[in-house]
Amino acid sequence: MNEIEKKSVCTCGEIDDNKKKLLEVIVSVNGDKSQLMKVLNAAQEIYGYIPTSAQKTISEELDIPMAEIYGVITFYTRFSLEPKGKYNIGVCLGTACYVKGSQMVLDKVKEILGIDVGGITPDGKFSLVSTRCVGACGLAPVMTVNDEVYGNMDPSKVKDILDKYV
């Protein structure tokens, strides 16, 4: 086992794959603390959020205080401390979409799923965020489900799209 693998061994004895991936990214920055954003982005990608264990690993390996890491995580919208749903729904509230009624689309999603922005359904399937402009303004109003982009939305289209993921 190499150094990274040794550090990735979980209490159960197996290698924690996510931790291994994270450590690989951390090692790649060679102790450069200014690369914290890269490491946090990687953690967000790997885990889908940034769990306490990941924060500890980053803090120990890069010698950055936990409070500072927490301060950076909570500053940037893309970093989340809570796991997202299996399907993360984003409704764009950027100007072009807003002017074309994306707020109503958002309200419809809230109504159907029974959750608010930032929330997650009890079964962990859907989470909802309002997004900033994703640059698909030609298709306004825009709704995203994970990486899938749905353009030209209106409230009546919401249910059918969500049903695809049930």
Binding site: P65, G71, T74, F75
Partner: peptide
């Protein structure tokens, strides 16, 4: 050089 507190949120 302890860093137990920091600015949080935005």
């Amino acid at each position: 050089k302890v860093g137990a507190i920091d600015t949080v949120n935005r």
